[in-house]
Design a protein around this nucleic acid. Structure first.
Lengths: 256, 256
DNA sequence: CGATGCCTTGACCAACCTCAAGTGGCGTGG
DNA sequence: CCACGCCACTTGAGGTTGGTCAAGGCATCG
């Protein structure tokens, strides 16, 4: 039996950040203004969006919403990192994604959120009511189109992750993980090959379907072989990305 | 290292069913008319859809499209069963989904299909050009809304599968698989508890991240314990669904 | 009637998990 | 300033699940 990191199963707290809007926002000056769904709207249109958006601040480990909550909002990450996970009744946990600044979060079928979302670092997110958003879809079709595209992207990522979880070895999983993170970091403007690892080893393990010990061992092996450097537990430098790419066993088309 | 069933890596044939339209269709009399996206359109509207749709027939093992193909169409399954999979360069394979009558197939980001789709049984699918479909979205907003909903549903399913692949034991995977199939079968009108297994053991293994031997052993164990009956290798009767549900370790909310 | 392909079963093995101990950074308090 | 505790991470020893390899049943097909 593959175990997840045990944890509290149900809501351990009534902290329910999704209901604690701090206040309105100024979308025009938003730091992720041009990297998110808002990018398809011009300055006049965005004030319409701004009217329905509220800002939420999260402390590390604070929950944004729980599995099963009525899905009344979607969220756009402005600062910080969140994790999204599902768990089994005995506490085994699977993180299905990490969400960084600019990412959209909270897509759900009508049955409510099918997963739990929690902050890893201090974070700020925009809260957008689904009802109001649906109304905006009618006015700005390109907004809905963009949503569809983002859903498709998430599906592609999910399929990659299924391949990783179903068929890759521990070393391949860790290598793939580091490469993906690096890719995201560079896409987001970072040129250096030192990539931040805001999440804990336990989170990485729960994302890769491994244990913290195995993750740590694989990191150790990569370090020993001179492929990465680990200045601090939350930073990794890719010394030989090519080598890492070989270890990752990329899938057929994308030359990860 | 977790192995996939080895297979031909790249296109072994130029058979490219997506380009071989058989002919037009009569959406009004379609067998899945009221179970698919078309269900949101009335009789007048559906002729607009009908105009852009072509029908494609597939033999077992025939490929509908390959990983990396330009994603110019989406497909609606009318008859039969398809599988969708990704693979690694060394042939390890992960099936990310089985598609039955009424299912929509071929959602993709703009970069082309991220997976390969192949028929398991003789199958018939509707081929819908994305460009023309996008144009229809403008006319029938509810159509696009429906698409968004289906994408969300697929995302939920993908997350369930990640939990299964990352954290469930072999027995739990097989039990969950049988329960899911049973759920789908009953949803689709079948009342009997004998569910058809159109796919091979190798396909099941590649879907569950296991080997054919392990799948076979788990089936054997469930049979030995009187939980299922296996009249033929491609049929399973759930004798004690309650018991099976216990073995499956459902996730927190959905009482699978 | 043999060949082929799929499924099943068994014996063995290794990758990864489990359990346990040890290290190091950081905050607190004396 | 140092002692202490805490927590995350690392490292090691040993066990279990599920993979590997191999053989055997059983149906279909020529």
């Amino acid at each position: 039996m593959a175990p997840g990191t045990a944890g509290s199963l149900h809501r351990t707290t009534s902290l329910h950040a999704a209901d604690q809007a701090v206040g309105g926002v100024d979308c025009g000056s938003c730091n992720v203004r041009h990297r998110v769904m808002c990018s398809v709207l011009d300055d006049e249109e965005i004030v319409r969006l701004q009217a329905i958006v509220r800002e939420i601040r999260l402390e590390p480990d604070q929950t944004l919403f729980f599995e099963g909550d009525r899905a009344e909002h979607v969220f756009n990450v402005r600062f910080g990192v969140l994790k999204v996970y599902k768990q089994l009744t005995d506490g085994r946990r699977q993180i299905t994604g990490f969400f960084f600044a600019g990412d959209l979060l909270g897509f759900a079928a009508d049955g409510g959120y099918s997963y739990c979302a929690k902050a890893i670092t201090p974070a700020t997110v925009c809260r957008i009511p689904r009802r109001a958003l649906n109304a905006l879809f009618g006015e700005f079709p390109k907004l809905e189109e963009h949503f569809l595209g983002m859903a498709a992207d998430e599906l592609v990522a999910a399929q990659d992750q299924m391949l990783l979880l179903g068929r890759k070895s521990a070393q391949e999983r860790v290598a793939s993980f580091l490469l993906r993170l690096s890719l995201r970091a560079t896409r987001r403007g970072r040129q250096k090959c030192v990539i931040p690892l805001p999440m804990s080893r336990a989170d990485i393990a729960d994302y890769l379907g491994l244990t913290t010990e195995t993750v740590s061992r694989m990191f150790g092996r990569l370090k020993r072989d001179g492929i990465i450097r680990i200045p601090t537990p939350h930073q990794v430098a890719l010394l030989r990305a090519e080598e890492l790419s070989n270890l990752a066993s990329g899938d057929l088309d994308e030359g990860l």
